[in-house]
Each structure stands twice: as C-alpha cells, then as structure tokens.
Amino acid sequence: MTDLSDLIHTIEYPYTRSTGPYLGPFLTGLRDGKLLANTVGGRTYCPPIEYNPESGEDAPATFTEVGPGAMVLGCTWVTDPSSKHPFSHPFAFAMLLADGADVPFVHAVDAGSPDAISAGTRVVAQYRDDRRGAITDVYFVPEAAAVDQSIEPGDEPVLITEHLISLVVREPLFPHRRRYAEGLLSGRLLGQRSPVSGKVVVPGRGYDNLNRVPLTEADELFVSDRGTVSSYTVLTPVQYYGQKETEPYIRCSILLDGTDSPIIGVDVRDIALESFRVGMRLQAVWRAPAERKVDGLDNRFGGSWEDVIERWEPTGEADIDPDSLKDYTW
C-alpha cells in the first residue's frame, strides 16, 4: 500500500534576469572583488541606483569603488538560518554603510557570535571562491577576521544573474482526497453526489461549487470506470525547465457513465490519433494492485490517472453522439 502521508511538492523556477546598465556593472564588480557605487543628488549609493529617489531623475551610470570596509548601522542575529540564507550557521543581517557611500544596504555578516556585532562595528567585504555575478558573491566579516584576497577579474561583463527559486509545499491529503486516494488504490473511482442538485462529480471537491454546500463521506459513491471521450487535444511538449515529456500525446476528458462532470487531464498514448474522437467509448484498464500508487495526487484537480490506470481501452461500443457531450467538454 502506498503511503498516504503528507503531500510534498517542490515548485522551482530558475530566474535568469538581465542585469542592465546599473546592476550589471555592480554585479560585475562583485565578481571581480569590488563594491561599486554611483552618485546622484549629492548622495552615493551602493548598490548603485537607477534614479534619484528624491526627484525621479535618471542617475548617471558611472561608477566609483567604495569599501571594502563598512560600518554596521543596525543588525539582527539570525539564530536559526533558513535554507535560503547565505550561511547555514547563525549569522547577522546588518544595515551596512560602505566606506565612501551615503546610503546603507542590507547584507550578511559572518560574525561568529551575536556579541561580535552591533551598531558601530566595522566590517569588511569578503568574496566567495565561487562567484557567479550575484549579490551572494560577497559577504562581510568583522574587521579583525578579514583576510586579504587576491581576485582575478573576469573577462566579460555580467549581463545575466541567475536565481533558482525553490519552494517546498507540504500538506496532508484533505479527508475527502484521502478517501478518493484509497479508492484508487483499491481500483475504484470515488465520486461525490450533491444532496441539492443530485449531480455526481469525480473526484469530488469536498463541496458542491454550484450550491455552496460542503459534501461529506455520506455524499460519496463509487462510479463506473467506463465512459465517453468528451473532449481532447494533442500536446506537443515544449522543452521547458522540468519538462519530462518528449513525444506528442493525447490529453482528453472522459465523461464516466452515471456522472455529471468529466474527469480531466487523462493522457492517452496508445490509441492512434487518427482514430481518436469525441464520442468514443473507453474502459479503464487498471494496473495490478501492487503497481498502483497515488503519490502524484494533489489536493486539487489531478486524478493521478496514469499511476493507477495503465491505459484506456476502446470498448467497441457504438459512439455517443458528440452533440450530446457539448456541455461536458471540461
């Protein structure tokens, strides 16, 4: 039996951002071991700023080096770093004013102990060995802990900065989804019938979204695993980050017998596209019990069809009139 413990999803997106005429030189500077600033309205900004915040006028894209020393104006000691922080051990985030600059910025200080940092503490920029043209190339340490670094400048300016966003989402299967998942593992499709309209939806949502009525276990029933194609499309996979599909395939909706809303997102890979059609009768062929799994299931629309149903087989019955399926395309 597949574990029905918490759902865990990781949502990732690798942002690649163009750096532009201000942050580009700044990030190039970090890669090359320098803190760069620009000046507008008589004030020097590190990191450089695109506009004068007082007036909105464009700031000049000309840069001077500031630092490497900086003054701590304020700080917080992070006792329990998150996996997104620059250090896995406790450290400080601090408001830092680089020597030669007039406006502070927030960055991380690897101070060793909360007693080693407070307003007025002098710190110095240090650079990581693996520099990528990103704000994380630099960090700061108290003056006494700074070491001299010899950094070779890179060849090309930093035109792109990368940031992989990754969020982990964890939640239990909602009670009605858990019962639905247990049904799938036992080779049955569990639906919910609204006590108000009598309409049967599979999988149920836990409520009737037309009449705003919560649905409970008492409203549940097993439905047929035989039905009619009510709509379909052919997906040709685009090779985006995370894409696992390589070949075109059919994605269809099937109106199961005795239900009032089709199951959606059913992928078909073994029926020739030329013979596939709305109105076609199909029968689920379930995987062997030991092969069924539901760990691809979420708490929303997904039916996790391919993890429990091996394929959908044409029954050979006469087609249903497509006109009668017009209200069941989705």
């Binding site: 942002y15 951002r17 750096t19 942050l23 990030l27 990191p47 304020g74 700080c75 917080t76 000691w77 992070v78 998150s82 996996s83 997104k84 922080h85 620059p86 985030f93 601090a94 408001m95 910025f105 927030v106 960055h107 991380a108 990103a134 704000i135 994380t136 900065t161 940031h163 966003i165 969020l167 982990v168």
Partner: peptide
C-alpha cells in the same frame, strides 16, 4: 520564511533569503 523573500528586490535581496523575521529584527 521562504516565500516572502521573493517579494524583495530580486537582484540585491531575494538571493540572500532576506526573510520577514530578519527584516523585522533589523
């Protein structure tokens, strides 16, 4: 704590994981 740094400046703050409790501490 992982979600809200994504609201901060994407070049100079978000990659540091600058979270709300830390900013609140500052």
């Amino acid at each position: 704590r992982h979600v809200f740094p994504l609201q901060t400046d994407p070049y100079t703050a978000a990659p540091l994981g600058l979270d709300y409790p830390s900013i609140a501490g500052l």
